[in-house]
Simulated scan of single mutants.
Amino acid sequence: MILLISDLHLEEQRPDISRAFLRFLKTRAAQAEALYILGDFFEVWVGDDGMTPFQHEIASALRTLSDGGTRLYLMHGNRDFMIGQAFCKEAGCTLLRDPHVATLGGERVLLMHGDSLCTRDEGYMRMRRLLRNPLSLFILHSLSLARRQKIASKLRSTSKKETRMKASDIVDVTPDEVLRVMRKHQVRTLIHGHTHRPATHALQIDGQAAQRIVLGDWDRQGWALQIDASGFQQAPFDLA
C-alpha cells in the first residue's frame, strides 16, 4: 500500500489538523510501504534555520515513521518551497523535484504539487518564477530570520486577498498544460494537489485513456489517496 497526501498547511493555529496528522502517521501510514507528501505540508516555511518547536515535533513524528520502515517522500509546495535538506534529514524523508515520475502500482505516474499547472494565473506564475529563481533563493536565505518572517507574512496575506478576487477557472489548472506535461513525461496518470478540489478526471491523450487525480486539502476533513492491488482510491476522513 502506498499513500499520497498534500495541502495539510500545518500550523500551530490549527491543532485539530496536527493531531489528525500525528494520528494518521501512527495508524494508516505506519502500515504503508511509502508516504508521499506533495507540497504545502506546512502553511509557511521561512527556512530550516527558523524551525519552531512545533515543526521539530512534526519532523520527529516523521522520523519515527521512517525508522519503522515506511519510505517518506516530500515535495515543495508554494507555501513551503524553502524546506531544505536539514529538515529532510531530521524527518527521515527524501526531497523530490517537482515534477517527479514514480512507479506506483506498477505504473509510471507523474507527481506534482500542481501550482505550475495554473498557467492562466499570469500574476502568480510571474511571482513563482521570481521566487524559485536560484538567485532569489540565495538572497532570501541570506536575509535575517526576522526579515524572512515578515516577507512570508506579507506574501501570504497578499496571496489570500488576490485569490479571493480571481475567477475560479483562473486559479485552477490549465487543461492544455496538463496534457502537455503528461505527454512530455509519457504518463497516463498525473497526481497533484494545490487546487483543493479533490477529484479524478478522465482524460484522453493521443487516443488513450488517462487520468488526473487531484488530492484533497486538510481543512474540514482529511484526504488520502491509497494505491494498492485494488487500484487508486481517494477518500475523505474525519479530522476529529
Rank of each mutant, 00 (worst) to 15 (best):
A210V: 06
R126H: 12
D172A: 12
S116M: 04
A86G: 04
F54P: 06
S230Q: 15
H185R: 06
T27M: 00
L10P: 02
A229P: 00
D80N: 11
A20Y: 07
S153Y: 00
S159V: 04
H56L: 14
T195V: 15
L140K: 06
D172H: 12
A209E: 15
D98W: 05
L8H: 03
G222Q: 09
K166Q: 12
K89Q: 14
H194M: 08
T94A: 11
T174E: 15
H76G: 11
L130R: 12
P236F: 03
S142H: 05
V178H: 06
A32C: 03
Y36I: 02
S159R: 01
G216R: 07
Q211F: 06
L155I: 05
A199C: 12
R188Q: 10
I17V: 15
A209L: 12
M182G: 02
V178K: 05
K166T: 02
V101W: 09
N78V: 09
Y124A: 07
L74S: 04
E122N: 07
R28G: 02
G68F: 09
S153A: 15
R129F: 02
C118Q: 06
G84N: 09
Q226L: 10
E33G: 04
F24V: 01
Y124I: 07
A32M: 01
M51R: 15
H201A: 02
D206I: 06
D40N: 06
M125Y: 04
S142V: 00
N78D: 14
V101Y: 07
A29W: 00
D219R: 14
V101A: 05
A167L: 09
F87L: 15
I83T: 09
H194P: 06
P134H: 13
E57K: 13
M112N: 07
G47F: 08
D16A: 14
M51H: 03
H113F: 12
P198G: 03
T158L: 13
Q208C: 10
C88E: 05
R108W: 05
P175E: 05
I37L: 15
K166G: 03
I227S: 05
F21Y: 07
R79G: 04
L110V: 09
R183L: 05
Q226W: 03
I151R: 01
A152F: 01
S6L: 00
V187L: 11
A86N: 11
M165T: 09
L131D: 01
R183E: 13
A240V: 11
K160C: 01
A240E: 14
S230E: 14
R188P: 00
F41N: 00
L130N: 09
H201K: 10
L38A: 05
Q186W: 04
A209S: 15
I37N: 00
A199T: 13
D121E: 08
T27D: 03
V171F: 09
L74D: 07
R23F: 04
E43K: 13
H196I: 11
E57T: 14
